[in-house]
Amino acid sequence: MEKRKYLISLIIAFIVISCDKIDDPIPKDSGTSVDFGDTEFIIDQSLNIADTSELRVLIESNTWIEKTSPVNDKRFIVLEEFTGMKCIFCPEGTKEIVRLDSIYQEQLIPVGIHAGTFALPNFVGDKYRNDYRVLPHSNDYLNTFHKGSGYPSGIVSRIGGIVEGKDNWENSIRAIENDAPVATINITNFYSEAANILRINVELEWLQTIAGNFNLQTYVLEDNIIDWQKFPSSVVPNEIPDYNHRHVLRKVVNDDTFGKNLAPAEQGEKQTIQFVFPFNPDWNADNVETVSFIFDNDVSSYEVMQANAAKIK
């Protein structure tokens, strides 16, 4: 009888444990949308703010560090690079990004997306224990843009929809660097150390009327993360614990893998959206910056039309 009890318990436990019941299959924006003046606030649900009065209390009862993005007077360019701590050739990609950054400065916005097998953390030992993937988004980007070429690889303003090797990045940047901007994006970050909350205010204005359906994508990046990195065996030592990981994607704001849909792009059209969410205490606020960009959400395009970035401190 005892054996039978154990057996039945085992089977029931097996069935219950190994099954995920999904009641709501459609991913919901993690934020609650609140209209306040001319601004649409998208507020992380964990903050429990559902109306304008509660929002006003949050804003007015805290002190905010305010940082703004540079003037968006030309077409800014986003370079999304796929990388990983165990990707032995990726440091060469980072060198190229640093070089390009020194040339194009604020016009170039690098994003380091840790994704794929080279980004898998170790589960034992003391090396490569930190997981810098932002799941499932990082893998979604990898699956969407990374069609079989090796690392280091990156995609310049998502043009063509497919990543290319580091030696082509500069050519791709040159091809669009002088394009007239179709829109401006101005970011103002409000960071409260005491409340541990970050507000990203994104103002966009269309300078041209253009056909298409556009989304707004917002990232949080952390620069200068010091952690393990592997190198080719020809490099001595071929792994170091204090590698400087640059512009690491830390959060896809509002969990929108492919952004928030925008109103039609008509000249003079303005839209202001503010994302409000808890600041992850694991991030070093001194090195955090936010990135916002508009891209064509047609799956055959994905082209980034305009972008900007701002520090939070």
Partner: peptide, 25 residues
Amino acid sequence: GFSGISKYQQDLNSQLVLPENVGSF
């Protein structure tokens, strides 16, 4: 006889919330 089978597959889809563990009995 009684049987249970469960499969695990990672959810990498951003358009849907997929069950990573699917059980049957």
